[in-house]
Amino acid sequence: MVPASQTPIPAARTLDQLRAAIARLERASASHGMAPLAFGVAALDDAMPQGGLTRAALHEVAGAGLDREHGALGARFAAGILARLAGPVLWVVGHGALTPPFAPGLASVGLNPDRVVYAQARHDATLLVMEEGLRHRGLAGVVAEFAAPLSLTASRRLQLAAEATGVMAILLHRQYRSALSEAAGATAAATRWRIAALPSGPALPHAPDVPGLAAARWRIDLTRCRGGRTGSWIMEACDASGRLGLAAPLAHGPAAAERRLRA
C-alpha cells in the first residue's frame, strides 16, 4: 500500500477529466445527434450543461402560487419550447375540472394547434399514455399534465423512454385544489422549472400612466438541472414565436433595458 501523501494527485484535473468522460458517454447515448434546444438567452443557456435543453430527456415544469392549480404559465412555457421544435406534439390532458389548454392560447406562443394531438387520460393512465407517446420517434415532444407527485421509478421510466427515441418529455405539475407540498422529491428528470408570475411594467415605459398591458413578466426558477447549475431569472414571457426575453428589473429600468438589448 502506498501512502496517499507520496503520490500527489492533481485532484481538480482528474475530476475534470472524469466529468468530461461522463458527459461524452451521456451525450453519445442520449443526444441522438440532435443539438440541444437553446433559449437564445445567454444567462439561461449557460446554466444548462450543453447550452440548452436536452431534447431526449424529461423536463418537469410547475407553476407557482395561484398557477400551481391552473398550470397556465407552465403550459405556456412548455408550448413556447415545443413551438421551436418541428413535428407533432402529444398533449396528455386530464379529465373533468382540469381544463385542457385553449388551442388559440397555444397558437399565441407559436405552437400551431394543428400540430397538437390531445389525449384525455384518467389520472392513473396519464404517465402510461405519456410513455406510449415517447416511444414514437415522429413526435417533437410529449406534454403531460399530472396532478400527483412523480415517483422516482415513474420518472426513470419516462426518462429512459425519452432517451431511447429522442422525443422531448415535459411533465407539467398541477395541483387540483389541494394543499399538497410542492413535488420536491428526487426524480430522474434532467431539469425542473418553476414559473411564477411577477407584476409587469407599464405598457409604455416613457408614459407610465397610459393604461394597457406590457409583455407578461415571469420569474423562472431552474430548481434542478442535471450536470448544470440552478438559477433564477426574471424574464419576459414567451412571445409569438415562443421565445423568452430577459426582462428589465423594475428597480433600475433604463440601465437594464440597455442590457437586454445587448443580450
Binding site: P113, V117, Y118, A119, A125, L128, V129, H136, G138
Partner: peptide, 22 residues
Amino acid sequence: ADISALVDRLSNRLGAERVYRM
C-alpha cells in the same frame, strides 16, 4: 404513418373520442 400508429394505440386504450385534435 407514425402518428397514425400512435393514434391507434391511444384510441384503443383510451377510447377513440378521447384522442383528438382541435
